[in-house]
Every structure is written in C-alpha cells, then in structure tokens.
Nucleic acid binder design. Structure first.
Lengths: 193, 193
DNA sequence: AAAGTTCTTGAATGATCGTTCAAGATTGTT
DNA sequence: AACAATCTTGAACGATCATTCAAGAACTTT
C-alpha cells in the first residue's frame, strides 16, 4: 500500500475558497488544479469528479462551521451573549472584502438549487443541522430564563437563520458596516424579545 | 428601414425565465436560442452578447417588478395592508415550484457578485430602487399613523428587505408554506411594531 | 535489490461553450 | 420592377470545458 501524498483537508479548504469566490460553474478544473496543487487525475481519483469535490468541500465546510459554532457557545457565560457575538462575527465577515464574506452553503444553494438535486439535498441537510444547533442553544436560553416562551425556540431560530441569510444577501449590495450592525442588532432584539 | 421582427419584451421575458431557472452560467446560448426563438446572430445583434442580454433582462425584470409594486399600493386602503399582501404574495411564490419561486436580481447577484462588476452594479441599483419604493410607502404609513416613529421608515425597510431576501433563501431549503407564512407574519410584526 | 502495487502525471479527447460572419431573405425606396 | 438597406439565418470558429488513461514515479513488500 501507498498512501496519498496530499493533505485532504488542505485541498478541500482550497476548493472551498475557490468555490466561494468564483462560484461552482465558473470554477474550472484548471482553477482547481492551480489552487489545490492536484493534477486532474488525482482529483478524479480522490473525488470522482468536480461535483464530488464540491460535495466533499461542502462536508468539510459544514464540519468547520460546526466547530466554529461550538467555539462560540462553549463558555459558560450567558447564552444570548454568544448569539450576539456570533452575529457580530457574521457582520464583520460580510462587510469585509474577499471570499470569507460569503457562505459556501448559501452561495452553492442559490446557484444549484433545482439543478443538482444531490447537492441541494446535502446543503439543505447542512443548513438543517446548523439550525438545530441554534435551537439547542435557544432551548438552553429558555431554561436559563434569558428568553420567555412567547415564541418557541424553534420559531425564534427560524426567524434568526432567515435573518442571517438575508443579512448576507443585503451585504452584497450595501456592505456598510454601520447599516449591517444596525440590522443585526435589530434582528437580535426581534428574535430575543 | 426595416424593423426587427421579434417582440423585445417577449424575448426578454423568455430570457428572464431561463436565467431564473438555470442561472446565468448554466444557461447556454443554445438554451437562449430555444426559449427566445432567436438565432445567435440576432441575439448578438440586438444585445451585443450574452451579458448584454442578461443586463437587458434585468432591466425588464426591474420594470415589471416596479409595475407589480405600484399595483399593490395603488388602492387607497391602509398602507400596511398592502405590505401584508405583498408579503403573502412573496410567500406563495416562494412555496411553489417552478421558476417564479426565485428573484432574478437575487439569484444573479449571488452568482455574479465580485465576478461581473457591471452586472453587480446594475443589480445593486435595482435593489436600491426597490428599497426606495418601500421607504416611500412606509413614510406614508408614518403620516397615516399606521406606524410610530420608534424607528425611521428607512430602518424599518432595511429590516424588511433583508427579511425578504432571507425568506427566499430559507424557502429553498424548506418550502413548507405554513412555516414561510409564520416567518412572514413575524417579519411583518417586527417591522411594523 | 528486485518485484509488485499504488499513486501521480499531463497530454489527449470529445463535447460544449460564446461568438462571428457571409450568404440568403425580407422590407422599403426609387 | 429594380435597387438599396437591413434583418435573419445557421454553419463554422477557436477557446475552454470536464474527463480519461496510459506511462512514469514512488513506495511497500519480499
């Protein structure tokens, strides 16, 4: 046996950045060869094809986001403080230039929904997981008495994730950080009221 | 002189539908030939190239949306009633299948932002116009006493359009009409509170 | 160190892409 | 009716696309 020479995570992160900046369709295999350092044959051997690479990249992205998420809520401070700082982080990411202002799942969903059912399904699943992590957080907030039960945690989270999707789209037309911060603060207030 | 034989609006509406269903990159000139009934040469003569056709389609789309908008607020009923029915219409569009569940501006923005500056600029302008139409509506609502001045009309509208962007994205992962209606109702309450 | 296995390489493939343009068709003018 | 002007047609173009695969390189085992 001989093990592969490339670092899978490193390759996937490079692919993630490429897909986030240029989108799936406009990212050619030549681009992917350049950023991953892998020759076409290796890519096809490891991921079957371009779509397979996207699916693997989405999986990696989901994992990274899950780790990031737990990082925000690992401390034993108030739960809502974590939500607030999560939103602040999202805003500052959106207001910057560069690839990180986007979300791979959201961008790929917009591009490929109803065109690539498998991809759509995987993204929907990832987003559902993300949403469920938030629900767990808000259920804890309810137990802590940080929020009341005028709306269920799930209802609040649905509004929250909808708001974050909207925030990212809004930021693409108007990346003023003050406006985005105001929007995020208002969203926080509405969701925790 | 000899006038063109095709109906420009008809061609643009066909292009709009095509771009909305498959996205810009994945809509080939062959597709466009098929749906518009125009041969490549005619398309290039009338719109210069594929991007020119997209720009023309975006312009037509913006015009159509503006007309649709005034339709919702032309009656002399309460302003907020119009907002509510606008949201209901958006929800039912999102929950359906087919091309109309998307918004051409939003989809193209997600696909082409930071890749095609000219397209991005035109879309940002269209979205700004859409937002300004809403601001005028909310200023009227303020005069009518339908909303208070705890937030400015502009602030309310920023939250509203952000919410609508988010609603459309949310609908792509979970098109249950009950959930979307609940989200839209909550958005309405938050924005008019 | 030789053989066997697995991975890497990158040129080649056929398909499809956006785009062009010269020839044909149609209309308006004289 | 003949000519000029303009539009339509669709085959052809080079470029680029995702993908393949046979040959070479590198590692493991004997």
């Amino acid at each position: 046996m001989r093990s592969a020479e490339f670092d899978r995570e490193q390759v996937l992160r490079a692919a993630i950045t490429a897909f986030m900046t240029k989108g799936y369709s406009k990212t050619s295999m030549q681009d992917l060869k350049k950023v991953t350092g892998l020759h076409p044959g290796s890519i096809y051997c490891a991921f079957k094809n371009k779509q397979g690479l996207l699916l693997a990249a989405l999986e990696q992205y989901n994992e990274d986001k899950a780790n990031e998420f737990t990082h925000y809520f690992s401390g034993n401070t108030q739960v809502l403080t974590g939500v607030k700082s999560y939103l602040n982080c999202t805003v500052s990411a959106c207001s910057q230039d560069g690839p990180q202002k986007n979300c791979l799942s959201q961008k790929a969903l917009n591009e490929l929904a109803e065109q690539e059912p498998l991809v759509e399904q995987v993204i929907a699943q990832n987003m559902k997981q993300w949403q469920e992590r938030f629900v767990a957080i808000f259920e804890q907030a309810l137990l802590n008495g940080e929020i009341n039960n005028s709306r269920t945690p799930k209802q609040r989270v649905q509004s929250l994730v909808m708001g974050i999707y909207g925030l990212r789209t809004y930021a693409q037309t108007d990346p003023q950080i003050e406006v985005l911060n105001e929007l995020a603060n208002q969203l926080f207030d509405d969701v925790t009221r």
